[in-house]
């Protein structure tokens, strides 16, 4: 039943034969994957296998690393994002990112969330900006905790709150795709559960890609799972299938804890 639904969804990001080199290191090897809209896609695999690297290809954050070279084709709704005519700055407004370590700016909670909308001129006035900030904070399940202290520094929040603030900051620019690189690795179990609930809800509006080192987390939050191994992506399928009946031997070994 779920297969029928997910298969009906449009393809948001299409990647074809993507290769990434850091100088002489060949970090991503011929990875092709179609990421669906309104779906949570999990990237799992042993550390150092290239999950973060591949994730950063999708919003061209790899451009900020001098030695990093990306080849292959990645399309966002049919447009080649590495095309010379595409401005990475505009691309990143459409493809948001949440990092492993919460990184709120040294500004007030309000200014953190309003940062993206202000830069992109999304809000017409103060009232609209207030609205955007409130709705982003509500979606990130943080509104009730911070509504009375929007002007206090974002860095003064707890780790879990900071990460939800970063998620609110990312969704305030109304991206179409949200990339999350191990968003819960610095969080305690309660904060992790909150963020996972949040991801669940985000799925209704966005295409979410989450890197995680926890297989339980992948199983809990995602509908699709891609398994990475030594720069290759041996298997990509419905999460259920990957965890119950993987077709690749390496996936099976990883799932059953043979390595990683």
């Amino acid at each position: 039943m779920q297969d029928a639904i997910t298969n009906a969804l449009a393809i948001k990001v299409a990647c074809d034969k993507v290769n990434v080199h850091y100088g002489d290191t060949h970090a991503i090897k011929d990875v092709s994957i179609d990421i669906q809209d309104k779906t949570v896609t999990a990237f799992i695999g042993p550390s150092g296998c290239g999950k973060s690297t591949f994730l950063r290809c999708i919003n061209r954050m790899n451009d900020t690393i001098d030695i990093c070279k990306v080849t292959g084709r990645i399309e966002l709704e049919g447009d080649d994002i590495y095309d010379a005519g595409i401005d990475p700055v505009q691309l990143r407004a459409r493809v948001g990112m949440v990092f492993q370590k919460p990184n709120p700016f040294p500004k007030s909670i309000y200014d953190n969330v309003a940062y993206g909308p202000r830069i992109h001129g999304i809000a017409a006035g103060k009232a609209e900006l207030d609205e955007i900030v409130e709705s982003a904070l509500r979606k990130a399940a943080l509104w009730n905790e911070v509504k009375d202290r929007l002007q206090s520094p974002g860095t003064g929040l707890s780790g879990g709150q900071q990460q939800r603030l970063c998620i609110a900051r990312a969704i305030a620019t109304a991206p179409e795709v949200l990339l999350m690189d191990e968003p819960c690795s610095a969080l305690d179990p309660i904060a992790t559960a909150q963020v996972e609930d949040l991801i669940h809800e985000l799925r209704e509006n966005y295409s979410v890609v989450i890197v995680t080192h926890s297989m339980q987390q992948a199983a809990r939050v995602s509908q699709k799972t891609a398994f990475f191994h030594l720069g290759f992506m041996p298997e990509y399928d419905d999460t259920e299938k990957i965890f119950s009946n993987p077709s690749d031997k390496r996936t099976q070994d990883y799932i059953t804890g043979r390595f990683g």
């Binding site: 700055v89 505009q90 691309l91 990184n103």
Partner: peptide, 11 residues
């Protein structure tokens, strides 16, 4: 991480 955070928001 500050730099990355800002760039990733499309700044």
């Amino acid at each position: 991480s500050m730099r990355d955070g800002s760039l990733a928001l499309g700044a």
